[in-house]
Design a protein around this nucleic acid. Structure first.
Lengths: 291, 291
DNA sequence: CTGCACTATGAATCGCTAA
DNA sequence: GTTAGCGATTCATAGTGCA
């Protein structure tokens, strides 16, 4: 097995990614700073400036991503003056304009979102996981994320009725037919586009934690071992750590020195090679260990 | 208790609603035809025409809705050429332009989503439930939709959707209230903005049914007894039936004679007063029983 | 009336083929 | 070149019938 590389770069991804060759990344998975909310830790981009702030960066993402690659963007609009901001909608339209294909919107349902309410709304228990591609024909390894079948399956596969053994055609004219026998004796099935993942609580290192399960799911789904994963807003390095654990090479970019240092320390604990303050082409087979 | 009214009008809501006074409706909850789909039963509006088709209608919704009222729109963009259509995003922007406030987006997680797997995507298991308001200070009765603490993710939808589906032997309408009474001694908590509700299978009357649990949840949340509920795309009349069962007045508009007739028959079974082919001001205290 | 077994079907999507 | 039609694929839930 080839040696894995975890590159961690300090700086703004808009400029730092300039050192990476075209078409070299298999998956970009990231959770950028949203507007205002975390003004204390990040700059806090104003909603009406968000698209202008983001698109030069996504232009670089488009350049470094392989044609078969995927870009996953975790984002949710903030509420301001009791109303939802529109910048995420404008961002999707701008990315489409930039040449991205909007192929899917996964929902991250935050399972352990605890009950609570405000005068005019309930607890927010979901976020968007937007999928963009350079080309509608991208790589996808669906078998890697299969889940156990529902309990109903136990009964079904024992007693297959006559109707289950023959293919039947739907009456609504959709051309849909079914043959239950096809999935008898199956214990794993394909998931849906709703991800039920709990938030990880108690992380004090970074203000907006991405639970490990999110990058893990997408890394398994869209890359194979040895592929390259990029997180241009690396934060405390969750994506890089998961990538390394799953046998993928990775590049992280973080603009804040504090989080960059935390990520570097975490990666050292994981015994992942770290290249900091150095632009390292991900297509190179080995990363330098310079600090 | 005052006599309840269920008005069912035949025609295009864009014109039919002209007979309703300004600021007279407390809640609009509806699921309009999406683009292209169901072209055999509905017209099938082309994606690039959708906003132009919808906004004259929503202009009327804006007029008839009370300042404290709410508009809930169930919609989802289709996939075309391996990519998501943008018309829902354009529609949200157009409604904002029209003067609506976009206050929330609930997610309807369809527990039993349509089966299937494709080379580039999984099953689609969610739809949007967009909330719009005339004024950010709207009426909301949050206590009415509280759920028992604990396994709320599963139990809630079970009980909500079971409301009218207990065997015919049980009295219609008593199901949910009785269950709430049973929970009285337990701790009730507020739900989140993710609704876990199964689609209702086996409905042969309409190709795209709204499960009863959806209008039920919003009617309880945004109206009180005696208030007025409007469904401008009434379909087989699910919203009206639920409104009547919960003690709310309602107005439904349906453009297709076939579904209009089905709704009327259903409402007669419920012993709800029905006014068809007649414009009836919802602020009137009684509806005529003319056919 | 309850419980269990079995049946029916749902706002789906992709890719190929025929026209 | 463009579009319309059709086959293939697939999971979970509610309703019905019967013991």
């Amino acid at each position: 097995m080839k040696k894995l590389v975890s590159n961690l770069l300090l700086g703004d991804c808009e400029t730092v990614l300039g050192g990476i060759k075209d078409n070299s990344i298999d998956l970009i998975v990231t959770s950028p700073p949203y507007t205002d909310r975390r003004a204390d830790t990040y700059g806090g981009i104003k909603p009406d400036k968000y698209v202008d702030w983001f698109t030069p960066k996504s232009q670089e993402f488009l350049r470094v991503l392989k044609p078969t690659g995927t870009f996953i963007l975790n984002i949710k609009e903030a509420t301001q003056d009791r109303e939802k901001n529109l910048y995420v909608l404008h961002l999707i339209l701008a990315l489409k304009e930039q040449g991205w294909h909007w192929t899917e919107e996964f929902i991250w349902h935050k399972k352990n979102s605890f009950p609570g309410k405000w005068p005019n709304r309930f607890r927010d228990a979901w976020e968007r996981l937007l999928q963009f591609n350079k080309d509608p024909h991208f790589s996808m390894y669906q078998d890697e994320v299969r889940i156990p079948i529902g309990k109903w399956g136990d009964v079904r596969l024992k007693n297959l009725s006559a109707a289950d053994k023959t293919r039947k055609t739907s009456g609504v004219g959709s051309g849909f037919g079914r043959k239950v026998a096809n999935w008898a004796n199956r214990d794993l099935v394909y998931p849906t586009n709703v991800l039920h993942i709990a938030t990880e609580t108690g992380n004090k290192n970074h203000s907006a934690v991405f639970p490990q399960a999110i990058p893990e799911w997408f890394i398994k789904l869209f890359t194979k071992e040895g592929d390259w994963v990029l997180d241009p807003f690396a934060g405390s390095g969750t994506t890089l750590r998961v990538a390394h654990r799953l046998g993928r090479n990775s590049v992280g970019v973080e603009v804040q020195r504090k989080y960059h240092r935390i990520s570097r320390n975490n990666l050292k604990l994981d015994k992942a090679p770290v290249v900091t303050d150095t632009i390292c082409l991900p297509i190179r087979k080995k990363g330098k260990s310079k600090r």
